[in-house]
């Protein structure tokens, strides 16, 4: 209903030029009213973006250059927050932990997603069921409850610990072990490979069957077909997934906090789960250093932006867009 109303003027007034000289004509007035109506309908969204996203972002940009404890007026201190950051051992540590999480977790997750997608792409019985089953974890993945489940699975004397003892490895709880807590977090993200898997599935279905048939006639094996046909053909999808997952993983928060919070203060044993966003939160809301936290947030944004730019640069080398389609 709304859409027809809004598009109709254009359709009716296809021969626009004659009317240009009389902008105050009744039709133009009607159009302006409709434009206004359109903007009015957009208001809730605009208000949301302005008040909840853009406004806070600008304020936090300002706060990044101030000393602000949430209660007193922010005091301008120039670049000191950024200088403090580079001198802060815990900040470097949080960068290390986050990078480790991203650089180990993302490739594993994408590999798992692609692997399972390859298994599920061929039509077979119960396909729908398997797809849903593999997709399910990513629906609930970011929730607190699944973090709690994960923690109780990997805790002292819990399922994993007992199973490991059964095979003769008494490591105790993984969550409480500074060397094993991060791998536990990584397994949690890898387990949620459902979302990229669905995208891979869509990509795989686009690959023309003739290519495989021709390759088979030429005697290409499974691996060769994967390397020379599948990978290049789905490279745009792979690129998309890689980008999305990287950006997403840098912002890991909930699962790390729930896993690391078994002792009250999150961060895990010996700060082994001190992911960037948690350290930011701790500085801002617990230590009341909101200026420092804002500076950290912008640093993270810069980092992710830089990485994205680099990835876009590299795509010419390995991402192949089919000519003639509007994939670009």
């Amino acid at each position: 209903m709304t859409r027809t109303q809004m598009t109709r003027p254009d359709v009716v007034e296809r021969p626009r030029t004659p009317h240009r000289r009389t902008p105050e004509g009744p039709r133009a007035a009607g159009r302006r009213r409709e434009t206004l109506a359109g903007y009015l309908f957009l208001t809730p969204w605009c208000v949301g973006v302005l008040l909840l996203t853009l406004g806070p972002m600008l304020v936090s940009l300002y706060l990044a250059f101030t000393d602000y404890n949430l209660f007193d007026t922010p005091r301008w201190i120039g670049l000191r927050n950024f200088r403090d950051m580079f001198a802060d051992d815990r900040w470097w540590h949080s960068v290390r932990v986050t990078l480790e999480y991203v650089l180990v977790g993302t490739p594993l997750k994408l590999a798992a997603a692609l692997g399972v997608a390859l298994l599920l792409v061929r039509p077979r019985r119960g396909q729908g069921f398997y797809r849903s089953a593999f997709y399910a974890p990513s629906l609930i993945g970011a929730s607190v409850s699944i973090g709690i489940v994960w923690r109780s699975v990997f805790q002292d004397d819990a399922v994993v610990d007992r199973a490991m003892r059964f095979v003769g490895w008494d490591a105790g709880g993984w969550v409480g072990d500074p060397d094993w807590s991060l791998p536990t977090l990584v397994t949690l993200t890898v387990w949620q490979f459902g979302a990229p898997m669905v995208i891979f599935l869509a990509g795989l279905k686009q690959v023309p069957r003739e290519l495989y048939e021709a390759a088979e006639v030429d005697g290409a094996g499974v691996w060769r077909r994967f390397r020379s046909i599948t990978l290049p053909m789905i490279s745009p999808v792979l690129f998309f997934n890689l980008l999305l997952e990287l950006i997403h993983s840098f912002q890991v928060f909930t699962s790390a906090v729930v896993l690391g919070g078994s002792g009250g203060g999150a961060g895990g044993p010996a700060d082994s789960l001190l992911v960037y966003t948690w350290y930011l939160y701790e500085q801002g809301f617990r230590n009341l250093r909101m200026g420092y936290a804002s500076a950290m947030a912008w640093m993270l944004m810069l980092g992710i932006g830089l990485l994205t730019a680099v990835l876009f640069r590299t795509q010419r080398g390995w991402v192949h867009y089919e000519e003639g389609t509007d994939a670009r």
């Binding site: 709304t2 109303q5 009607g30 009213r33 409709e34 109506a37 009015l40 309908f41 208001t43 809730p44």
Partner: peptide, 14 residues
């Protein structure tokens, strides 16, 4: 006729 009605509806929404 329709224009103002659209406006009115949007106004109501706001």
């Amino acid at each position: 006729v329709r224009g103002p009605r659209g406006l009115r509806a949007a106004g109501a929404a706001v």
